[in-house]
């Protein structure tokens, strides 16, 4: 088992190294894309900045607290987009018939699909995320201690799991249909875009939805309350770990999809 994991990780790193070398064949376009990624989320930041210039706070959250929150969400999202892009572009892979190639190779299909793409250009967003994060860390007035640092790590882990799960769902659905999958954007890009504010400001229904259906709130709102010292119960801190369970139904859907593919061939 340990050997298998080691081999899989080795293979994945091999894939990544090929992607990085491929991208470096087109340096100009790579750096331009990095810039583009940066500009895109910089606009979002400008929106936040000017709204806070006018209103100073939202539902009790200050500018610095919101940046801390957005920094973490954006890190999760850009990391997930970096390594789980293979899921995101899986519909194209199915359309071009390249999944057949995956199936004739003696490795797990998931590993090969993840390895099929690595979106290094997301470091553009990552850069901004890190800047906002550290600004938030130092200016939000959080009293940092070991448990709070652990909470941030849990948030990153859980958040990446939720986004990965969503990309995985998108990939699984493309076994059944290739049209209309854009609606998944609501959950992936929508979550990263609107996850800039603590989910609580969107009202109770959305909070419920993001607690029990797609567990964003578990990785964003509840642990954030713990960080800011508004809740002290340990469950708020551990909530992101609960969100890891989200990957289970995603994996089941994927298996179901592969089965469908091998019986319908399209």
């Amino acid at each position: 088992m340990a050997d298998r994991i080691k081999k899989s990780v080795g293979l994945y790193i091999h894939y990544v190294s090929i992607h990085v070398r491929s991208v470096m064949e087109y340096k100009t376009s790579f750096w331009l894309t990095v810039m583009g990624q940066f500009f895109m989320s910089f606009n979002v930041f400008l929106g936040i900045f000017f709204l806070f210039q006018r209103f100073h706070q939202v539902e009790g959250f200050t500018y610095q607290e919101v940046l801390l929150c957005y920094g973490i969400v954006l890190m999760e999202f850009s990391l997930a987009e970096m390594y789980a892009r293979g899921f995101g572009e899986f519909p194209g892979m199915v359309r071009r018939g390249e999944f057949d190639r995956v199936l004739v190779r003696p490795r797990s299909a998931v590993l090969q699909v993840l390895g099929s793409k690595f979106e290094l250009s997301r470091i553009g967003r990552m850069f901004q995320a890190v800047v906002m994060f550290f600004y938030g860390v130092f200016k939000s007035g959080v009293e940092w201690n070991f448990l709070k640092i652990l909470t941030v790590l849990f948030m990153l882990l859980g958040g990446m799991a939720v986004f990965t799960g969503l990309f995985w769902i998108l990939a699984s659905l493309s076994f059944f249909t290739l049209e209309g999958l854009e609606f998944m954007n609501v959950f992936t890009h929508g979550a990263s875009e609107y996850g800039k504010y603590p989910i609580g400001i969107y009202g109770n229904k959305i909070l419920l939805f993001t607690t029990f259906v797609i567990p964003y709130a578990l990785v964003q709102y509840y642990p954030l309350l713990y960080l800011l010292g508004r809740r002290t119960h340990w469950i708020y801190m551990a909530a992101p770990l609960l969100a890891l369970l989200f990957l289970v139904p995603c994996g089941v859907l994927w298996r179901f999809g592969v089965k469908h593919y091998t019986s319908s061939g399209s």
């Binding site: 091999h14 090929i18 491929s22």
Partner: peptide
Amino acid sequence: LWWDVPVIDSFELLKDIYS
């Protein structure tokens, strides 16, 4: 084959894939 890297790199990857 991978489009943008030398063919030998694709071969090396296949070595890994097929162990």
